[in-house]
Computed example of a mutant assay.
Amino acid sequence: MDKKFDFLSKALLTTAAAMALFAGPANAASDAKSDEAPLRVCAGANENPYSLKSEEGFENRIAKVLGEAMDRDVEFVWEDRPAIYVVRDLLDKDKCDIVIGVDTGDPRVLTTSPYYRAGYVFVQPSNSKLEIEAFDSEDLAKAKNVGYEPGGPAEVMMVKYGLFSKNFNYVKSLTNFKSSRNQYLRIDPALMVGNVSSGKSDVAIAFAPSVARYVKESDGKLKMTGVPDNNFRFDGEPVLFHFDQSMGVRKDDEKLLAEVEEALERAKPQIHEILIEEGIPVEEPTKPPSDTKS
Score class of each variant (00 low, 15 high):
residue 170 Y to I: 07
residue 109 V to Y: 05
residue 164 F to Q: 03
residue 160 K to M: 04
residue 175 T to S: 15
residue 101 G to E: 15
residue 108 R to P: 08
residue 196 V to T: 09
residue 160 K to N: 04
residue 138 E to C: 08
residue 146 V to K: 07
residue 101 G to W: 07
residue 168 F to P: 01
residue 211 V to I: 07
residue 152 G to R: 15
residue 212 A to D: 05
residue 209 P to S: 06
residue 133 E to N: 13
residue 163 L to W: 00
residue 216 K to S: 11
residue 208 A to H: 09
residue 182 N to T: 06
residue 214 Y to V: 02
residue 171 V to D: 11
residue 181 R to W: 14
residue 183 Q to E: 12
residue 126 S to W: 12
residue 186 R to C: 12
residue 193 V to D: 00
residue 205 I to T: 06
residue 170 Y to N: 11
residue 94 D to K: 15
residue 213 R to C: 02
residue 161 Y to M: 01
residue 128 S to V: 04
residue 155 E to W: 12
residue 203 V to I: 04
residue 141 A to F: 06
residue 145 N to L: 02
residue 149 E to K: 11
residue 184 Y to C: 09
residue 105 G to F: 01
residue 154 A to C: 13
residue 198 S to P: 14
residue 205 I to G: 10
residue 119 G to C: 12
residue 129 K to R: 13
residue 185 L to Y: 00
residue 126 S to F: 14
residue 126 S to E: 13
residue 209 P to M: 04
residue 196 V to M: 09
residue 201 S to V: 01
residue 97 D to R: 08
residue 172 K to M: 00
residue 114 P to R: 14
residue 166 K to F: 13
residue 164 F to V: 05
residue 164 F to E: 04
residue 196 V to R: 10
residue 133 E to L: 11
residue 94 D to T: 07
residue 87 V to F: 14
residue 189 P to R: 13
residue 91 L to Y: 09
residue 124 Q to K: 09
residue 165 S to T: 14
residue 164 F to I: 03
residue 145 N to M: 02
residue 169 N to Q: 02
residue 89 D to G: 00
residue 204 A to E: 01
residue 195 N to P: 10
residue 163 L to H: 01
residue 109 V to G: 09
residue 215 V to Y: 06
residue 94 D to R: 15
residue 169 N to Y: 02
residue 150 P to H: 09
residue 208 A to M: 06
residue 122 F to I: 13
residue 166 K to L: 11
residue 204 A to N: 03
residue 158 M to V: 13
residue 162 G to M: 05
residue 162 G to L: 04
residue 164 F to A: 08
residue 153 P to W: 14
residue 110 L to T: 04
residue 140 L to M: 09
residue 145 N to Y: 01
residue 150 P to L: 12
residue 90 L to Q: 08
residue 126 S to D: 13
residue 119 G to Y: 08
residue 177 F to W: 05
residue 213 R to N: 03
residue 118 A to L: 03
residue 177 F to D: 00
residue 137 S to R: 12
residue 130 L to Q: 08
residue 207 F to A: 01
residue 107 P to G: 00
residue 113 S to H: 08
residue 112 T to C: 08
residue 201 S to E: 01
residue 110 L to Y: 02
residue 135 F to K: 02
residue 133 E to M: 13
residue 194 G to N: 15
residue 160 K to S: 03
residue 209 P to A: 04
residue 108 R to W: 09
residue 185 L to R: 01
residue 87 V to D: 12
residue 93 K to Q: 10
residue 145 N to F: 01
residue 185 L to V: 01
residue 139 D to Y: 10
residue 181 R to F: 15
residue 181 R to L: 15
residue 96 C to N: 11
residue 165 S to V: 13
residue 127 N to A: 15
residue 98 I to D: 09
residue 93 K to T: 03
residue 129 K to D: 12
residue 158 M to W: 13
residue 166 K to M: 11
residue 178 K to C: 03
residue 108 R to T: 10
residue 148 Y to H: 07
residue 187 I to S: 13
residue 110 L to F: 03
residue 150 P to R: 12
residue 171 V to P: 07
residue 128 S to A: 14
residue 144 K to T: 09
residue 163 L to T: 02
residue 214 Y to S: 01
residue 140 L to G: 08
residue 203 V to P: 00
residue 128 S to R: 06
